[in-house]
Design a protein around this nucleic acid. Structure first.
Lengths: 218, 218
DNA sequence: AGTCAACCTGAAACATGATTCAGGTTGTGG
DNA sequence: CCACAACCTGAATCATGTTTCAGGTTGACT
């Protein structure tokens, strides 16, 4: 359930139950520390302290600070995607699916606001890992859009690949502005305001070009 | 022409012609060094070396490493916006303006790919500066969209503020994926592929909901 | 009730780099 | 051609933090 796509670093060592647990502790601590302080302010000492583990132990499980960061990003990637696909399960039309997918994305972001930050920081800490993250999300999207297109569910003139990236962009900045920034003021978990969500969905609904109006091309 | 909005750091000191020149040299060097290495890999020594100036001199012009970074982001912000509004000048309809604005944005990004990176890194180095950057861009957008709305040029049901952020997101991720990543392979200046651009504009055109089809509300 | 992997530990080695400071240089106005 | 701002300099000071290492601890198995 976890050993699937990972395969990026994770020093290979036997790992008995005890070891497994320690490793998990470290990853969990890293999540909190990186999220709160950012990559460069975070230190191995802080991570091991948070995990309640000796400093030296860290290097039994991860080669470097960067290695644990990369593992963390991949872990988060799986979790967001799960959150999205869970929400999308029942959807029948593409627009329904889209609405559900975004709801899942925002739910995850609202629940783990700081984690969003970790992912974005990957752009500077480990670009290849960030690419992986984005590409895995986009790929699902692209397929969904292509299928919707052959079902006549959305505008056939759109390029699914381009549209998928455009949708990611919308989600990313709307999430950043209306979930994370607004949240900073108080401390509430705060879901995305309904009006904002609806307005965004109208934008997207338009963009994908619903069923009707497939008339001429100018 | 430059002293307008700046006002964020820039230690206040007399500054004769000679000093002015040195300061400009430092900012220019910072641009190159930050762009190439990122904030944390960049060092004051590297910046002063690139500028051909003594290490200590740096601190006569900037309080800290962070201060020069912030000045740089604000400077870039002005330049992108100029690039966008230059391009938008002749446009009559909102869609035309949109197309031109994006063209300007991508032109700037293509010409200064590394600078894009500096701006995005501001999210981690100086969040308030990043907010300023985004908000200055969005504000122009929002006004344009609101005006277009009262002219009946775009879907009246959209919230201009939300739509503006959505558009920013589209530009940001499309630029990142199709300009910066594709570019990395070879080294060409490479403008955004026409097909990609057109496809993105179709998406946006749809999203803003052109003149026709203003029918019912469900 | 001993043995041996596997696991854990934190002080110290090493590296890096921002910032300061005591003292030099430049060039302009008189 | 003197004097004094304004300007410049880079070695030394501090601070921080990753990574290593020599030596303990634990617990499953016999």
């Amino acid at each position: 359930m976890t050993t699937d796509e990972q395969s990026l670093s994770t020093a290979g060592r036997p790992l008995t139950a005890r070891g497994e647990k320690t490793r998990a502790r470290l990853l969990d601590a890293a999540e909190h520390v990186f999220a709160e302080l950012g990559y460069h302010e975070a230190s191995i000492v802080k991570i091991t302290e948070h995990a309640g583990i000796g400093l030296g132990t860290f290097y039994l499980y991860f080669e470097t600070k960067q290695a644990i960061f990369e593992d963390l990003v991949l872990d988060l990637n799986q979790r967001v995607r799960r959150s999205m696909s869970e929400e999308m399960e029942g959807a029948t039309t593409r627009i329904e699916a889209e609405r559900a997918g975004f709801a899942g994305f925002f739910r995850f972001t609202a629940e783990h606001p700081a984690l969003y930050r970790v992912v974005r920081e990957a752009e500077f800490v480990s670009p290849p890992t960030l690419k992986l993250h984005y590409e895995r999300i986009v790929e699902g999207y692209r397929q969904g859009l292509a299928r919707a297109q052959s079902d006549g569910d959305i505008d056939p003139r759109l390029d699914p690949h381009v549209a998928a990236w455009a949708l990611m962009g919308v989600g990313e900045l709307i999430g950043m502005r209306f979930l994370l920034w607004d949240r900073d003021v108080n401390g509430a978990p705060a879901a995305l305001d309904d009006e904002v969500f609806d307005s965004m969905m109208r934008f997207i609904d338009n963009a994908l070009g619903g069923r009707r109006t497939q008339g001429g091309d100018e």
